[in-house]
C-alpha cells in the first residue's frame, strides 16, 4: 500500500498555497513534512486526507485516484489524526476508540464481537486499555493523544497520517507520542505520514523528509543527506550548527541566529 501525490495544486480563494507538490510514501516508511509557517505543510496533509479539495493534480492511493474511491473505502486504508479535533465533555476513551470501526460498519449496524476485539487491541497497543472508562477531558495531553491514536489504529489501516501530533505537548509527552508512532511503524508495518515542527524530532524519527518552502518541495530524501546549513538558511532563515547525534545516528541541529 502506498500513496502518491502528483503535482498537487491548492488555492485558497486567489492565493496559491501549493504550487504543484509531488510526494510519495512507500509501504512501511515514516515520512515527515517540514517547513516554516505558511509553507503549505498542513495544506498538503489536508489535501492527502481529502479535507480540502485540490485545484489540480492527483492523489493516488494504491494505484487508484482517490477521487474515484468511496470515502469509506479510503478510511479503511488511510487513517487521519488532524490537528483540530473536538470532543464532548463526557466522551470515554473506549467510545472514542470504537469510532475507529465506523468505516467498517454497515448502515445502522452495531459493533460486532470482532469489532470489539479490534478496539480492545487498539487500546492495548496504545497503552490506553487501563484508561478505557476514563473521560477524555480528564486525561493528560499525552494520554489524550494516545486515545486518539487508538481510534485511528482501530481503523486497521496501512497508512496513518498525523498533523502535528506533538503540538501543545510538553517534551516527555512529545517523546511518548513519537515513540508510539515509531513502534506502530516497526511492529505493525504501518506507513506514517506526519507534519512536525521540531526539526530534530523530524530528523530522528523519519525515514525520509519533505522540506516545503512557499508551497513547493525544496528538497526531499533521507534526513541525513537533506539537512545541511544551506538548507536551514534558505528555508528556515536560521544560521545553525549541525552536530552528529551518535546515539541515534542522525544529525542534530543547534540554531545560532536568525538570518533574513
Amino acid at each position: 500500500m502506498d500513496i502518491r501525490g502528483n503535482n498537487i495544486v491548492v488555492n485558497y480563494d486567489d492565493k496559491i498555497v501549493l504550487k504543484g507538490v509531488s510526494m510519495e510514501v512507500n509501504k512501511g516508511e515514516i515520512v515527515t513534512v517540514i517547513g516554516p509557517n505558511g509553507s503549505g505543510k498542513s495544506t498538503l496533509i489536508k489535501a492527502i486526507c481529502r479535507s480540502i479539495k485540490i485545484g489540480d493534480g492527483e492523489i493516488i492511493l494504491d494505484g487508484k485516484n482517490i477521487d474515484n474511491i468511496p470515502t469509506k473505502e479510503i478510511a479503511k486504508k488511510l487513517a487521519v489524526l488532524p490537528q483540530v479535533k473536538s470532543v464532548s465533555n463526557d466522551l470515554l476513551v473506549e467510545s472514542l476508540a470504537s469510532y475507529g470501526r465506523f468505516p467498517h460498519l454497515g448502515f445502522g449496524k452495531r459493533l460486532s464481537k470482532a469489532d470489539r476485539d479490534i478496539v480492545e487491541w487498539a487500546m492495548e497497543k496504545t497503552g490506553t486499555l487501563a484508561l478505557r472508562d476514563r473521560n477524555i477531558m480528564t486525561l493528560s495531553g499525552g494520554e489524550r493523544q494516545r486515545a486518539w491514536i487508538a481510534m485511528a489504529l482501530a481503523q486497521k489501516t496501512d497508512i496513518l497520517v498525523l498533523d502535528e501530533p506533538t503540538t501543545y505537548l510538553d517534551i516527555s509527552y512529545q517523546m511518548e507520542v513519537l515513540e508510539l508512532v515509531k513502534e506502530l511503524n516497526e511492529t505493525l508495518g504501518i506507513s506514517i505520514v506526519m507534519v512536525l515542527h521540531d526539526l530534530n524530532q523530524a530528523i530522528r524519527y523519519s525515514d525520509r523528509i519533505y522540506v516545503l518552502k512557499d508551497g513547493e518541495v525544496f528538497d526531499h530524501g533521507d534526513p541525513c543527506e537533506v539537512i545541511n546549513r544551506d538548507l536551514l538558511k534558505d528555508v528556515f532563515n536560521i544560521e545553525a550548527d549541525i552536530y552528529e547525534d551518535y546515539k541515534n545516528n542522525c544529525p542534530y541541529i543547534i540554531p545560532n541566529k536568525i538570518e533574513r
Binding site: C49, S51, L78, K85, G100
Partner: peptide
C-alpha cells in the same frame, strides 16, 4: 434512530469525520 453513530462521529470535528469515512 439509525443514525446516532453518524452524529457521534460528526461531534469529533469535520476533519476527523472525513478521516473516518463520513461524507
Amino acid at each position: 434512530m439509525f443514525l446516532p453513530t453518524r452524529l457521534n462521529v460528526l461531534m469529533l470535528g469535520d476533519e476527523v469525520s472525513t478521516g473516518l469515512g463520513l461524507n
